[in-house]
Design a protein around this nucleic acid. Structure first.
Lengths: 225, 225
DNA sequence: TCAAAAGTGTTAGATTTACACCCATGA
DNA sequence: TCATGGGTGTAAATCTAACACTTTTGA
C-alpha cells in the first residue's frame, strides 16, 4: 500500500440479489426477513459479502448458489449502491445483481431452510435499507431486456405453452397483450419451436408445448417482442 | 465491527469517469496518460478514490469537478468493475460513471493542467486495465439514452443549429441520418424551439438557431429520435 | 457566378393495432 | 351439453424510409 492510498478508507463490499421467478401468472422475487442486526426482522433481499479471492460476478454467483444450489443462472449487474447511510453499522457498499430462475427448479426444502419466499413484484413490502430501490432498478432493466432478448425463457420450464409465455410477458410489462398479435409474433421466430407434446394440465382441450431452441437463436438472433 | 464482518476483506473503492463531449462533429471522451504507478504512462480514464464521507455519486461528481471545475453536470452510473486482476497493486473496485459536458464550457487551461485530451470515440487507444470495457458499456448506455431522452442537449451550446444536432446524433449512433426525416421529427417536438437568431459561422446563408426548452419538455416529456 | 450549406413534402412499404368466432374436451 | 381455455386472419391506421430540388449568400 502506498502512502497515497492511506488517505482513503477501505469499505466492505456486498452483493444483493434480486431473484426473479414466474409463478401463478405473476412475476415474483425471492425475499426474506433479515436474521441479523442491523435491520433484524425487516424484509430484505438475499445478499452476502464479497470475498478477497473473487470478482463481483463470482460473489454474486456464489451468493445465488448458496441460496438456491443453482449454477449457470442468468445474472446481470444492476448497479452499485453506496449512500453513506445505507448501512446503519459500518459502511458497506453493495452491488446489486438480478437473476432469472425457473421456480420449479428451486427446491422448496432449500427455500424454507433459508427462510425466503416468493413475493409478487406488484406487492413488495417496504424492505431494509435501499433494497426497494434496487428492485425498482432491476425491474426497469429487465423490462428493457425482455423486449429485445429471449431472456424470458429462463423463467419458464423447457416446455411451455404460448399462453404461459404470454402471461409471463404480461406480468413483466404490467399490461395485457392481444392474443392473436402475440402469437403472430411468436410464429415469426423460428427458434420458438412447436413440439408434438400437449399440455393438458391447464385445459381440457390441451395446449401445444413449445421450446426455445437456443442454438437456432444463436444462428439468427432476431428477437423482438 | 462485528466478528462476522472480519472474515471479509475491505477494499478500496474508486470512481472512473467517461466524460463525453462533442467537437468537430465527433463524439469524444476525455482521457489522459496515467502519471502514477501502476500503469504509469498508459492511457486512462480520469478517476479518483471514494472518500469516507461521500456517497458514490458524490465521489463521481467531486472527481468530475476536480478535473473540469464544472458542477450540476449530467452524470449516471455505468456499473461496478471488480475483477481480481483489474488493479495490479492492491485490490481496487471501481464504479464507472459517464458524464456529458459541453466542450466549450471546459477551460482549455484546466484541461492542459490535468493533461487530458479529447479523443474520438471511434479511435480510443488501448487503455489501462478495464477502461476500454468501461467506455464500451458507457457508450451502449448512452446510445439507448439518446433515443428516448433529451440528453443530447447537454453536449451542445444553448443555441445550436439543426445540422449540429443531426451531426451529434449521427456521431452517437455511428450512422448517417436522413436530413428531411430528422427535421420532420424535430418539428414534432415543441420543446425544441426555433429562435430568431441566425448562425452564420458555418454557412454563408446562415442557419436558424434552436434551443431546448427544458420547462416545456417537463410539461410534456415525449422525446423520440 | 458558383460553391456550400440550409431548407422543404410526398409516397410506397412495413409495422402495429384492433377486433370475434370456432374448436376440442372433460366434467 | 356446456364451460373452459386453445387456436386462428383481416383490414385500417400509423410509422418508417427513401428520395431531389430550390434558396441564400460570401468569396
Amino acid at each position: 500500500m502506498t502512502t497515497y492510498y492511506q488517505e482513503f478508507q477501505k469499505v466492505f463490499l456486498s452483493v444483493d440479489c434480486i431473484i426473479f421467478g414466474f409463478e401463478e401468472n405473476k412475476l415474483k422475487i425471492l425475499i426474506g426477513k433479515r436474521n441479523m442486526d442491523p435491520g433484524r426482522g425487516e424484509w430484505s433481499l438475499y445478499g452476502g459479502f464479497v470475498r478477497n479471492d473473487e470478482s463481483l460476478d463470482e460473489a454474486a454467483n456464489r451468493t445465488l448458489f448458496t441460496l438456491t444450489g443453482m449454477r449457470n443462472i442468468y445474472m446481470r449487474q444492476v448497479g452499485a449502491f453506496g449512500s453513506l447511510d445505507r448501512d446503519p453499522g459500518e459502511r458497506v457498499v453493495s452491488i446489486a445483481y438480478c437473476a432469472l430462475i425457473n421456480v420449479n427448479d428451486y427446491s422448496e426444502k432449500l427455500r424454507k431452510q433459508h427462510g425466503v419466499e416468493w413475493v409478487d413484484i406488484e406487492e413488495i413490502p417496504t424492505m431494509y435499507s435501499d433494497h426497494n430501490e434496487m428492485v425498482r432498478q432491476a425491474r426497469i432493466i429487465m423490462q428493457q431486456k425482455f423486449k429485445t432478448s429471449p431472456v424470458g425463457f429462463e423463467l419458464l420450464p423447457n416446455l411451455f405453452t404460448l399462453t404461459q409465455l404470454q402471461r409471463l410477458y404480461e406480468a413483466v410489462n404490467g399490461a395485457d397483450l392481444d392474443k392473436r398479435n402475440f402469437r403472430k409474433r411468436i410464429k415469426e421466430m423460428d427458434f420458438i419451436e412447436k413440439t408434438d407434446l400437449i399440455d393438458k394440465t391447464h385445459s381440457k382441450r390441451g395446449a401445444a408445448l413449445y421450446r426455445f431452441n437456443k442454438k437456432m437463436y444463436n444462428e439468427d438472433p432476431n428477437f423482438k417482442l
